[in-house]
């Protein structure tokens, strides 16, 4: 180690090593205890494939909704000066720090069959979110939105607003400027926020199971399947977990330019 300022002190190096081990050992242990000959069977079982399908579909639909609604919100927070902007930004971060199970309870209160919005919705349309795949999507949107909005707002903020001014002098409306200047300039951040939100959505457990229960084929996602499988079949739970680990690593690789690009 070449460092002109002297050797890094053990008082700092030791905790750092410990921290690394704490993060690494569980993952290594999980991979090590996976039963490799049973793995293909576990991953191709009907319930596993259903859960994987529901996880992928709901996360993807949820992230599309997050982007459709969250990108405009991020733009408002980054580019428009209005009263209560600080309060709105704080509000956006609440689901980020809220225990997911509480998020599930809150969603129940709003969209449950007797909920504030859920009851009239049921009366008018005969549709209710809880215990449906749409309910899973709704829970995912609720927990992932903050990630998407905060990441994208940061990206929009770092895109120089003088480019917006230049576009305006050239005759562009704010919509044209948003579409052709602001978002393209912030695109790497927008993509990063989207992938981050998608990963959060894929791993979502607490709000989903509280709001929607755990019904194979409709609301059972990979995390909720792993949770119930673990109680009966440790090996199957390990196999499913390994699959999720691989997906997480995939996300990390997709984002490496943003987070791992700097040494």
């Amino acid at each position: 180690m070449r460092d002109r300022l002297g050797r890094p002190p053990a008082l700092l190096v030791l905790p750092a090593v410990l921290a690394t081990l704490l993060l690494l050992v569980p993952l290594v242990a999980m991979v090590a205890s996976t039963s490799w000959q049973d793995l293909p069977g576990h991953l191709t079982s009907r319930t596993a494939l259903d859960a994987l399908r529901i996880s992928l579909v709901t996360s993807t639909v949820a992230i599309a909704a997050c982007l459709l609604l969250g990108l405009p919100l991020a733009w408002l927070l980054a580019r428009v000066d209005f009263r209560g902007r600080g309060a709105l930004r704080a509000l956006v971060t609440v689901p980020l720090v809220l225990p997911p199970v509480v998020a599930g309870v809150a969603l129940r209160s709003a969209f449950g069959r007797t909920g504030l919005v859920g009851e009239p919705l049921l009366a008018w349309t005969g549709f209710a979110f809880p215990f449906t795949t749409w309910g899973v999507v709704l829970a995912h949107v609720f927990v992932s939105m903050p990630f998407v909005v905060i990441a994208i707002e940061g990206a929009l903020r770092s895109a120089d607003p003088r480019y917006d001014a230049a576009a305006a002098t050239l005759g562009a409306t704010r919509w044209t400027t948003f579409r052709r200047v602001t978002v393209p300039l912030a695109l790497p951040g927008v993509v990063a926020g989207t992938v981050l939100g998608w990963a959060r959505s894929l791993g979502e457990f607490g709000a989903t199971i509280t709001f929607n229960g755990n019904y194979p084929g409709t609301t059972q996602t990979m995390p909720t399947l792993i949770y119930v499988t673990r109680q009966s079949d440790q090996d199957a739970a390990l196999s499913l977990s390994l699959l999720m680990l691989l997906v997480s690593i995939g996300v990390l690789i997709a984002l490496r330019d943003h987070w791992l690009g700097t040494p």
Binding site: A166, A168, T169, G171, T173
Partner: peptide
């Protein structure tokens, strides 16, 4: 508004 001033900057 800016975009209607037809000013090249």
């Amino acid at each position: 508004p800016v975009r209607e001033r037809r000013v090249g900057l």
